[in-house]
């Protein structure tokens, strides 16, 4: 079986000669839990966006579940996102004024699932993240940690094999962040491949695999606790 995520010499260049990602080749297998670590501006989000098919490389290839993203049409790439990938963002991106249940149900809106089924599964997903008692709350009535758990419920409602999280704990205090991480670890042990970007040293060192990046290039994998920790120390 091929790796779930495969990058081959992927490069991302922005206008003004900014090379955000430089000749990156990585392979991430099914069921992995990996962290992308590196200083600010090193290209972590750029990498995650390429893997998430939200953006395409300037050169090189990105293959998700065997599909060469560069070859896919907009419809196909959209279908790939709705079937294979769940996203969790630092800013949650919950729809204001809409209750948690509906926010989570929207996770299946573009998957062709009927509304009743979406709501049923949204309730189950909220239960999975421990928010059964907050289903009818609007985002502004929830704490930061609760909001991120709602966002995670939305990402996992379609049971995607791949979950991408860009600094999911960046806006949370350490207790709430730990809650979110426990949730992600639980999902991973159920088989979901999870890739997260984190600035949190403790979280980073606790992950089974780390992908250090700096200046748009992947760094040689340092033994846990040395290279990565250093990078993060520079940062803070």
């Amino acid at each position: 079986m091929t790796a779930l995520i495969e990058l081959e010499r992927a490069t991302k260049r922005y206008a003004g000669d900014v090379v955000a990602l430089d000749d990156v080749s990585i392979s991430i297998g099914r069921g992995e839990l990996a962290g992308i670590v590196g200083p600010s501006g090193s290209g972590k989000s750029t990498l995650l966006n390429l893997i998430g098919t939200l953006d395409r490389p300037t050169s090189g290839t990105v293959r998700i579940d065997g599909h060469d993203v560069g070859e896919l049409s907009d419809r196909e790439v959209s279908a790939l996102r709705s079937q294979l990938i769940g996203f969790v963002f630092q800013q949650f991106h919950l729809t204001a004024g809409v209750v948690a249940l509906d926010n989570v149900a929207d996770g299946l809106l573009y998957a062709g699932v009927p509304r009743a089924e979406r709501l049923r599964r949204a309730a189950a997903a909220l239960q999975q993240v421990g928010l059964s008692h907050r289903m009818e709350h609007r985002p502004h009535e929830l704490s930061g940690g609760e909001r991120q758990r709602v966002a995670i419920a939305r990402a996992l409602i379609g049971h995607p094999p791949l979950l991408l999280a860009d600094e999911p704990t960046g806006n949370l205090d350490s207790a709430a962040g730990a809650g979110v991480m426990d949730l992600l670890r639980g999902l991973n042990s159920d088989g979901t491949t999870i890739l997260i970007i984190t600035h949190d040293q403790q979280i980073a060192t606790s992950l089974p695999r780390r992908l250090p990046i700096s200046d748009g290039r992947m760094q040689p994998i340092a033994p846990p606790g040395i290279g990565a920790t250093k990078e993060i120390c520079h940062e803070s």
Partner: peptide, 16 residues
């Protein structure tokens, strides 16, 4: 724009 980006990440096509 944020909402549009979110919907795209959830799998909305341009047409949708």
């Amino acid at each position: 724009r944020g909402e549009i980006g979110l919907r795209r990440s959830l799998g909305a096509t341009r047409a949708q």
